[in-house]
Design a protein around this nucleic acid. Sequence first.
RNA 1: GGGCGAUUGGCGCAGUUGGUUAGCGCGCUUGCAUGACACGCAAGAGGUCACAGGUUCAAUUCCUGUAUCGCCCACCA
Length: 854
Amino acid sequence: MTSVPERPNLDGLEERWSEEWEAAGTFRFDRTATRDRVFSIDTPPPTVSGSLHIGHIFSYTHTDCVARYRRMAGEEVFYPMGWDDNGLPTERRVQNYYGVTCDPNLPYDPDFVPPEKPEKRSIPISRPNFVELCRLLTLEDEQVFERVWRKLGLSVDWSMTYATIDKVSQRTSQMAFLRMLERGEAYQAEAPTIWDVSFQSAVAQAEIEEKELPGAFHRIPFRFSDGSGQVEIETTRPELLPACVALVAHPEDERYRPHFGTTVTTPLFGSPVQIRPHELADPEKGSGIAMICTFGDTTDVTWWRELALGVRPVIDRRGRFVEIEWGSEGWESADPEAAQANYDELLGKTVKQAQKRIVEQLIEQGLLVGDPRPINHMVKFFEKGDRPLEIVTSRQWYIRNGGRDDDIRERLLKRGAQLVWHPPYMLNRYEGWVGGLNGDWLISRQRYFGVPFPVWYGVDDNGDPDYSKRHTPAEDLLPIDPSTDSPVGFDESQRDQPGGFTGDPDVMDTWATSSVSPQIISGWADDSDLFDRVFPMDLRPQAHDIIRTWLFSSVVRADAEHDSLPWTHAAISGWVLDPDRKKMSKSKGNVVTPLPLLERFGSDAVRYWAANGRPGTDTAVDEGQMKVGRRLAIKILNVSKFVLGLAGDEAWNGEVTEAIDRAMLAQLADVVAVTTEAFESFDYARAIEKSEAFFWPFCDNYVELVKGRAYGTGSEAAVASARRSLVEALSTLQRLFAPHLCFVTEEVWSWWQPGSVHRQGWPEADELRALAGEGDPGVFTVTAEVLGEVRRAKTEAKRSLRVEAEAVQVFDTPDRLALIEPARADLMEAGRISDLVCTESESASVDVTLSPED
RNA sequence: GGGCGAUUGGCGCAGUUGGUUAGCGCGCUUGCAUGACACGCAAGAGGUCACAGGUUCAAUUCCUGUAUCGCCCACCA
């Protein structure tokens, strides 16, 4: 039965056991399990167009530890894996890899084969062809990822994977969208939109980040139209002067109060604009009076909307200055010809070029007060972009997320508070974000690779889309691609023809699909049997930086569709920092790849490092911790081998009679209780900390104290007690470490027990307590202390620990001496003590007389 | 500007309801081949728990400030 290798080691455990687990279906989800027995996990899908870095290893290990605990605690764990192959990163990669570009107007070519090598000039292909290539390339990436995950030992059910662009995801995503559209939770609007001029797409509030850039204040005078003087504004964007539609100052600002309602003219262009009051104008900033342009920033949009101003757009979607359409009367200006002449010099220029020119014009015409004053200011960027965002007017899809409706906002705040956060303070991030929303969620992107909007529009007699005539497909037809499928009642010959139809050209934002990941993996669209067993899910593990995006948007979708939370718990992980505690990023070049670490230290060692990162806490890459993990794994091998050598199968029949054995088991029972409690609150780190804190003294003190007895010294009952206690402790410890060190524990379990350790029951504190009986934990603790004193004497004498202690005198209080007495024989054997005398005394000390040196 | 975290020996970290000499690991020093483990074992040195107040019989732990670091948010003229 028991079969222990001669020299156990960690080599090859990962390959051996991950193959075994796959073959035996150890982590296969049993879908006959009912909801009350299921623990379901909404695994984050890693972006496959990137590469796995150590941060993934870190946070996925946390989830895996929890999953393994839950499984052992008797739950049926639903633990799938997803791949995020959606969005811009994949698009870019496919374009470069195959040398193609997507043209949504082209028809699908079923025979298209990409060139071996990308050609100089990129080949335009249809959206379905483009999407096919994306799938082809991401499939390879997924396999690489899966290999790393298996090496790490994630206990996911590999028969349950999804990709954010696969059919099920598209279908779920489109279906959820259409239902929101029907309920009025999704809508289309023509409005000023934050726009990235490089990517040619609108972007959402959540995808914006700010960078500090150098800029300059330009002080520019506006003359009163009645010739009575001037006001001076300050701006960092003088190029928007032709787009100026009003000036604005704070209503209480005494400097400008008398001028509210009066008209001034814009320099260079001579357009009449009014001075208006608004609270958002900051008297402290610049000269306290600002120009409103259509549109320089989001404040402009607010002012423009709330003051009901006209619009003078000057920047197009490519970020260049365009012809202004003024109608028949030309420039609305005191001097239309001069205005047009000034503006002609800006035509076709980029924002940067135009700014340069307009400043020259201002200087030439004496319209700049003083020199431009250099400052550094924050400028909004798309998080993946490298040019400042502009604001253009466009038609986009939105989802109501509370940004414009207080009642929705309140409801979503309440949902957030219902969610159990680990750690709890992460709720603040959620509430801060939801409270600060200033618009609905923009979900349409003018890109190609993504889930298309399942919508067509009628085409009017002029051949233009008629957005009021909307066609949507029945749910059972989903997923559809409106660029190749036609709506019911039409055929392809009517595409883009007067009286016919046209497809919505946009795709959904990545988060619009990711936000329904719980519905995708739960089978909401097509598998109601599965759905009922796993939804609402139990756990969403994710990092703190995407609380505002993935977590929040998922709450929005589940609230709208199911009137519930998508999951009960959110476990928020920290980031991995490089060894110098700097955040890892590709641009810094400090990204650590995991595979070499997994190979060097072993997966259990890397898992150990990860498991020591507290929930929600940023943690540095620390090879020292991995070394410690490796040592712990080796220790588990060796102590298992030793104990199994001392105690055979018949050890289970023994009875625990000795006080020190009972003491050890009583302590172990407490450890089981506290680790169980830690795991119940998703604190995998505290769990391993407590197990480990017991484990080392167990090896170094308990095993040392009882090994003589376990070998056969003493009465039959005493021997049996030691052996039984050893196998009980070993079995318990192997299971306690199983969630974290999944490979080595499986290895040592296999030496003497049938089945996988990962399918065993979690240790029960009560069972151990029953074995321990009335055992006083102090017997073990105090005896170990005395043994320590004896060892110290030997070490300080620079003698071997094996040397005989001729006489040991223990001075201590009566109650402590009473604890030593029942373990006297073990203590004398372990300490090689020939004569042990205990003497009552107020102050504790131990006198040791060693045998003389040879 | 608002909010959230962090601050414990050279380094990385625990310290969960305030309570006797503040723990652990790495590193360092000194020993030891002891019936599993030298990828081991034993022992040792090393901390005014960021700073200043307050509450309390008692504060690393609670409260209020301050400083430094990190993160999130904000309308960035």
